[in-house]
Computed example of a mutant assay.
Amino acid sequence: MDSASIRIALIDDHALVRDGVRALLEMVERFKVVGETGCGKEALTLVERERPDIVVMDIGLKDINGLELTATLKQLHPSLKVLILSMYDNQEYVSQSLRAGASGYVLKDAPSREIVSAIEVLAVGGRFYSSDIAEKLASSEPQQEAELTPRERQVLLMMAQGLNNKAMARELAISVRTVETHRLSIRRKLDIEKPADLMRQAMEHGWSPELDARPE
């Protein structure tokens, strides 16, 4: 097997969904689907046996909640990346997926390119959320918006989208050092130390770069 390939397992209790996702992923040369199942118990065995890099997980499994299974898999295999692929677009499920240890959340009716992009981002240690999820979260009222500058809200949202410092600097046309300064300021203002908690803040409050595109 090519050392650069990305090993993927599919966990969804609808065979037609698995068939469609597998067909899509197998069109990408680097992707290798190493197994699939619709059962949570079988998923534990599958991951132990095949050791995939990424699991594409449905929430509504018949024998166990997909978020509970995500948490269990992350405890057993900390390096495993989990991408939630779900029909549910409510904010609470997204927040629960973060707490369970998932690194991404994509809707089943999202464009196929989002699933491919999500896997590529997760494979290099990033996070990815469906554009529809980001738009829905952006419609909620930020609880701490007044504490952050428009630029800090941009940086926080980009962190939630999985961008690293260099990518954020390029996107915002600022230096990497300035990005690092903004990140430090965000942590101080929100009294948050862990990067995962910063990601959660961005996803829960949904700050939108389109709303805050004006320069400082």
Rank of each mutant, 00 (worst) to 15 (best):
E29P: 09
Q144E: 12
N65V: 03
V155W: 07
L172R: 09
T45N: 15
A173R: 11
G125P: 04
R127S: 06
G101E: 09
R153C: 06
R22E: 09
R18S: 07
E120A: 13
T37C: 12
A4G: 10
T45W: 02
K81S: 15
S185Q: 08
P215D: 15
I192D: 01
V34Y: 11
P111D: 14
D109V: 10
V17K: 07
V56I: 15
P195K: 02
M158S: 01
G20S: 15
L137Y: 01
A71T: 03
L107E: 07
Y105R: 08
R22K: 15
S208E: 05
G125E: 08
L122S: 01
H14P: 00
G40M: 10
D197Y: 00
M203R: 02
A167M: 12
P78N: 08
L98S: 05
S97R: 07
E29R: 12
E42W: 04
S103P: 01
E114W: 05
P142R: 14
D63M: 02
I119K: 06
I59W: 03
K166I: 14
R187K: 15
H77E: 04
T72F: 00
S208R: 08
I119P: 06
I54S: 01
P78H: 04
N165Y: 01
E180V: 00
R170M: 14
R113H: 15
S208T: 03
D12N: 15
D58A: 13
L76V: 03
K62F: 04
D2F: 04
D13L: 08
E92N: 08
R18T: 14
V33R: 09
L61Y: 03
L16V: 13
V116Q: 06
H182N: 05
L67V: 05
L190W: 04
D58S: 12
R187F: 01
R22P: 04
G35S: 06
R187V: 00
E36Q: 15
E210K: 12
G35F: 09
T149R: 01
H77Q: 12
I84K: 13
P78V: 08
M87W: 01
G162E: 13
A173T: 10
K41L: 10
Y129L: 14
I6N: 03
L73W: 00
D63Y: 07
H182D: 15
E145Q: 15
G38W: 12
T45G: 08
G126C: 14
G60L: 14
L80G: 12
V121N: 06
E204F: 08
V17C: 01
E26M: 13
I133S: 05
I133V: 14
E216H: 07
R51A: 14
R22Q: 14
V28N: 09
L25A: 09
S185E: 06
S117K: 09
